[in-house]
Design a protein around this nucleic acid. Sequence first.
RNA 1: GGCGGGUUGCCCGAGUGGCCAAUGGGAGCGGACUGUAAAUCCGUCGGCUUAGCCUUCGAAGGUUCGAAUCCUUCACCCGCCA
Length: 430
Amino acid sequence: MTGAPVNDVIDELHRRGLIALSTDEAALRVHLAEGPVTYYAGFDPTAQSLHVGHLVQFMVLRALQRAGHRPVVLVGGATGLIGDPRMTAERQLNDRDVVAGWVQRIREQVAPFLDLPAERDGLPAPVYVNNLEWTQPLSAIDLLRDIGKHFRVGQMLAKEAVSARLNSDAGISYTEFSYQILQANDYRELHARHGVTLQTGGSDQWGNITAGIDLVRRTSGAKTHALSTPLVTKSDGQKFGKSEGGAVWLDPTLTSPYAFFQFWLNADDADARTWLPLYSERSAEEVQALIDESVERPAARAAQRALAEELTLLVHGPEQLRQAEAAGRALFGRDDLASLDAGTLTAALTEAGAVTVDGELPSVAVLLQRSGLAASLSEARRTVKEGGAYLNNERVTDADAVPGDDAWLPGGWMVLRRGKRAVAGVQRGA
RNA sequence: GGCGGGUUGCCCGAGUGGCCAAUGGGAGCGGACUGUAAAUCCGUCGGCUUAGCCUUCGAAGGUUCGAAUCCUUCACCCGCCA
């Protein structure tokens, strides 16, 4: 090891558990030590927003940027039209204009992760690209002659996603089979255009990533590198990133900052401890101290709080974090609801989700249903019968009861709750 | 092409004429215990104008006082033979 260049980023990424697979690591360390490296990660527009599952990618991108390397973020306007083969079944193709819209939204969503450190800390500014730029003009002849010649079908068939699909009833379309060629070509283009020599991505992307490395080598002779992140899991085997019925999105209109904060705050103790190193940019010592604290005094939920605070700040910014925290305190605090002032209540309930009621007040059951706390009127009645419905923190016993005028809290609000965690506001209309 | 088996509620899976909105398990939801955890226990788990009514058991039609259960046709899936 004597004389081997020390590289803190790789050490840091290992320490945080962010590296699942890597190409020749010794060579990569040397490469990173030689000077600023331009690296990239790609995001396909398969939905209108990114979700918490994408966050690990940004943690890697940020760590590398902090070490002085230059990030390139690719949004897959072209690959999003083709579809990366999933293990299970063929993807439904989305309309071109729909995908184009998603590209725009995701592009905006990505910005804060890397732009802020660039502006504030003088780190290398990110470059944003869309692979439609070079994939769109590519003719069938160009693709098949210049790029296709470098691909062996045998290797393409051997990729895990492809072989899984070939062996399934679903089979695989030529469209999705071709996906790896396009992603590989992205690496080639970015290597040529921006001097990119490192690609990072999820370990499920490893096959596509290595296809790119091979293509770059065959076409230019250059040696390039790759790192992949592990799949983030939950200790109970459930899928990571789901909460009350849906994905946890980064878009504040799809998942409110309050709900986002609560998602992390409600993590299992075991999960919070394993996730903290992945997502926290605190020092190794601080992270360890938080984990120790979590083991000694689990009820304080130090690890969960750290995750919720850091990530809400990162994704939604300081003002949204402050409001999400205040909302949680207001709604779950020991204080009497009536003692809260109108401003606090308004902020908290707006975060939690609210419905406005004009004119006659409907029954509690109807309010539960309209606020979305219950999916149907039947479910709302059932909830009341089970003792799980609360109005202003008091258990409701009659589903058909109509709240009296004295139920209005400061600011014209009522606090409706289902179970322990699901809260919604009812606001008096005009 | 021939023969046989199958398609049930979010998922798995019982049910072969009335006692079936449909056994059981899982997921989900609520309660208790806790810490707005986990585990455990209890309850709940199609909809509605909720002691009643309406729509569900692959699709359509039929038999019957009455069908998830019987008959016919269609669609899809799975075995065995060719």
